[in-house]
Design a protein around this nucleic acid. Structure first.
Ligand SMILES: [Mn+2]
Ligand SMILES: [Mn+2]
Ligand SMILES: [Zn+2]
Ligand SMILES: [Zn+2]
Lengths: 140, 140
DNA sequence: AACTACTTTATAATTATTCTAAAGTATGTG
DNA sequence: CACATACTTTAGAATAATTATAAAGTAGTT
């Protein structure tokens, strides 16, 4: 694969540091995920459908799952849950909060929420992180 | 079903007010869910396995799903999500928060967490509820 | 160019959940 | 109580998200 040059360097680097060889398929997935200004919240099936829609030669389901899992293990994606039974992934890996608005997910920067009172961790345990979900509904 | 008497009245009432006839199966599920002092967090499959384990005549999978869904619609159960792709249900229907400790779920009473700062809802929207998850890990 | 370990893919398997339609039962009415 | 009827239960099929398998292909190295 001597086709991917400097233009794709940062996507290739993400893959390499996730322990993945930068194959064509992986570079395209990495670009699709990370080559954007705003946070991307997605399921693997959504990712697969939207990428494969435009492609003549489809990338296989297993490759999508494998790549997303590897990027998550390497810390380039975070996993979270909505109410349905599907895993969601988040390209914003910083600690932050969310609005949930009828299936739509919107980031809330960490410093937009602060606590007056928080419980202590049970004995033998400590707090790993605190995540807030603010569920929205329409006015009126 | 003239076998279920006064002793089961409150479980039968929960079913009746959920629009469900108090059949044997439903009364037993209702008792199993609500006849306890502490909050119960469960998946439908866990519920089915633990109830059917002790029974010679098993209750069908569809009945577990139907009954849990009806109790949820009637407001006697709340649904929530963990990181795996399964729906969890909570017998604590009040607004409250959770510790997540390696798959174990522990209630946090609403008044144990208060906010200093919270973002406003986007325009046209209002806040339906705010739920906090505190993820735990072992000390050290 | 050849070697080898890693990767992709089609396909099968698994898990949680929902659907279907036939057989069974709760409840109101006579 | 006897019946009718609508509601329920159930086994089994269907669906959706995900994971496993193993054969064919490719990247990185020498
Ligand atoms: Mn999963
Ligand atoms: Mn599912
Ligand atoms: Zn996010
Ligand atoms: Zn709870």
């Amino acid at each position: 694969m001597q086709k991917n040059n400097n233009k794709n360097k940062i996507f290739i680097d993400k893959l390499r540091s996730s322990g993945l060889r930068p194959t064509n398929q992986r570079v395209e997935i990495s670009k699709f995920l990370f080559n954007r200004k705003k946070t991307f919240h997605f399921t693997v099936e959504e990712l697969r459908n939207s990428m494969n829609l435009k492609r003549s030669k489809k990338i296989s389901t297993a490759t999508f799952y494998n790549t997303v899992h590897a990027l998550k293990s390497a810390g380039y994606l975070k996993e979270f849950s909505l109410e349905n039974n599907t895993s969601y992934y988040d390209t914003n890996i910083s600690s932050h909060h969310h609005f949930f608005d009828n299936g739509k997910v919107i980031d809330i920067k960490s410093d937009k929420i602060t606590f007056q009172k928080l419980p202590e961790a049970p004995k033998g345990k400590k707090i790993k992180n605190v995540e807030v979900v603010i569920r929205l509904e329409n006015n009126n």
